[in-house]
Design a protein around this nucleic acid. Structure first.
Length: 527
RNA sequence: GCGGGUAUAGCUUAGUGGUAAAGCCCUAGCCUUCCAAGCUAGUUAUGUGGGUUCGAUUCCCACUACCCGCUCCA
């Protein structure tokens, strides 16, 4: 991406963020107290939008299918569940920082090195009467010049100089001693500098349960779930046994998960609290790979249905070696955000890894008995796991447009439009009387509002000129506006009596429609 | 976590070591027969905490948050 394109995209992102705040889609969490890093709140319109997305996903994946069942698991999670899944031991990265360059490295990914370690206890500068005492060390590989160690050490100690004019070369090193080491991972392979002690960053939020809980009592430890998936695996047996299921079948869940991200970024994209929409689709081992491809295709259709065209999505077929060790196939579905191409959803074939782990740790039989073949086995699972908040952000980015329109007088102006699909638009229709000081118009408009309100979210507005009201709805992505005018009242004859102006958002075209047909017309657009 | 930047009203921006300005938005009223019209009135801001100072929104320090680049993303 060129600098100018990158700048343009960050301006675009700022406009989107600003609109989201101005119109009440998304607010910063605890804003009046300075904000909470990596947390966001949905305002009135954002809450509607998100609810519509979740409802549509649930309807398509649970209610319209007879082979997927829903559930809603607890967020607080038994520590043994996450020990079994590997999250307690493995859901953390030991990190260390280079003392010289401040580069951050994964401690477990450093190649072991051998050579001579040059230790130092400090440095001084005689002319300015300056000195520092601090342990430091540099690793010199075999055959390398030992003066490189001194040069690196001077560079390190020079970071503590107040007077930046003093050259590192003028520093006097103290306490040099050497030591031969083998296979150490304590030094930065790039420059030989000593690293900080590895620190664990477990990405899970840990808490203690019970009224008399004691922080140090290991038995009271519980976690906020880092993914919704584990609650599904843990309830696999209960769901399967209470529902007369046949393979393949799925269990779906929408819910909050929590990860203590080191570095939340990009608006709501990487948040510490986020919502997932996940399906664990259980199948016979031989069906797994084909079902993974099927799910990928089905999920792409879903994104198209909520207004994200396929050409703005990227499918990443995660190659061997980069997938989780238990996965035989993983696709990432990515979207072209203004800040870069980023993942919305992963479709992963996880084999029998999760159920097997829970069988092993709980000692409970979670095998599936197939009545037809009389076989007993651990089902394999395909997991389409979508980020709800990420999808909302993608939908918002995709919908946003600043359109240049020319009015009758030839004057150009900017129309801000959110092109939300009617399926997920927060407001389905604006209901307006043409003029607010004509009681007959107001009364009729209120009647229409009352007729539609039980079926969909509509918004009544009588303030300001009609054009302004249309534009206000454009900006929040309302697909249709209904205007009660004098024809509605029968002033232009009986033909137009009880019809209204229906104005479509994207084309700004107007047509007349009978009040009696409004409800079915609008509902049809939302299926 | 590192480096750089930013923080004034709901939004976008002025400005100042001594009463903080404007446009848009919003609210109320008047007016208005289809795409942000007009008139009148009105609400709302210097992120938080310290320091320097008679006095700080302005200068300094710390913190918090956001943005950009690294890093990370099981």
């Amino acid at each position: 991406m060129s600098d100018s394109a990158s700048e343009k995209n960050s301006v675009l992102m700022e406009k989107i963020v600003s609109l989201c705040k101005r119109r009440g889609f998304i607010f910063q969490s605890a804003e009046i107290y300075g904000g909470l890093n990596g947390c966001w709140d949905y305002g009135p319109l954002g809450a509607e939008l998100k609810r519509n997305l979740k409802d549509y996903w649930w309807r398509k994946n649970v209610q319209e299918r007879d082979d997927i069942l829903g559930m809603d698991g607890s967020i607080l999670t038994h520590q043994d569940v996450l020990k079994a899944s590997g999250h307690v031991g493995g859901f953390s990265d030991p990190m260390c920082d280079c003392l010289l360059s401040n580069a951050r490295l994964r401690a477990d990914q450093i190649e072991p090195q051998s050579g001579t370690v040059y230790h130092y206890s400090g440095a001084s500068h005689a002319e300015s009467d300056w000195s520092v005492e601090r342990e430091y060390a540099v690793l010199i590989g075999e055959g390398q010049d030992e003066n490189k160690a001194r040069k690196t050490a001077r560079l390190f100690f020079s970071k503590f100089l107040k007077d930046k004019q003093i050259s590192p070369k003028k520093l006097e090193l103290a306490g040099e001693r050497t030591e031969a080491v083998e296979d150490t991972t304590r030094f930065n392979p790039a420059n030989g500098s000593l690293l900080t002690e590895p620190r664990e960053f477990n990405l899970m939020f840990k808490t203690n349960m019970g009224a008399s809980s004691d922080e140090n009592d290991e038995s009271t430890v519980a976690y906020l779930r880092p993914e919704t998936a584990q609650t599904i695996f843990v309830q696999f047996k209960n769901v399967a046994e209470t529902n007369r299921v046949k393979l393949p079948f799925g269990i779906a869940q929408i819910g909050k998960s929590f990860r203590n991200e080191i570095n939340p970024r990009n608006y709501t994209f990487r948040s510490r609290e986020f919502e997932q929409m996940e399906i664990e689709f259980f199948c016979r081992p031989e069906e797994g790979l084909a079902l993974t491809d099927e799910w990928l295709e089905r999920r792409l259709v879903f994104y198209e249905e909520i207004g994200i065209p396929r050409e703005h999505l990227h499918i990443l077929d995660i190659p061997d070696g980069e997938r989780a060790h238990y996965s035989k196939k993983t696709y990432d579905i990515e979207y072209e955000f203004p800040f870069g191409i980023q993942e919305l959803e992963g479709v992963a074939y996880r084999g029998d890894y999760d159920l097997s782990k829970h069988i092993e740790h709980s000692g409970k039989p979670l095998e599936f008995f197939d009545d037809e073949t009389k076989e007993k086995f651990v089902p394999h699972v395909v997991e389409p796991s979508a980020g709800c908040d990420r999808t909302i952000l993608a939908v918002i980015c995709e919908a946003f447009e600043e359109e240049t329109v020319t009015d009758e007088k030839g004057k150009e102006e900017t129309r801000t439009v959110m092109h939300f699909s009617p399926r997920i638009a927060p407001v389905k229709a604006g209901i307006f009387p043409l003029l607010k000081n004509k009681p007959e118009l107001v009364e009729k408009a209120r009647e229409i509002q009352a007729q539609l309100a039980p079926f969909m979210n509509v918004f009544y507005d009588e303030a300001g000129a009609i054009g302004r009201r249309y534009r206000r709805q454009d900006e929040i992505g309302t697909p249709y506006c209904v205007t009660v005018d004098f024809e509605t009242l029968g002033e232009s004859g009986d033909d137009l009596k009880d019809t209204v102006t229906l104005r479509e958002r994207d084309s700004m075209k107007q047509e007349r429609i009978a009040i009696a047909d409004l409800r079915s017309f609008l509902l049809d657009k939302m299926v």
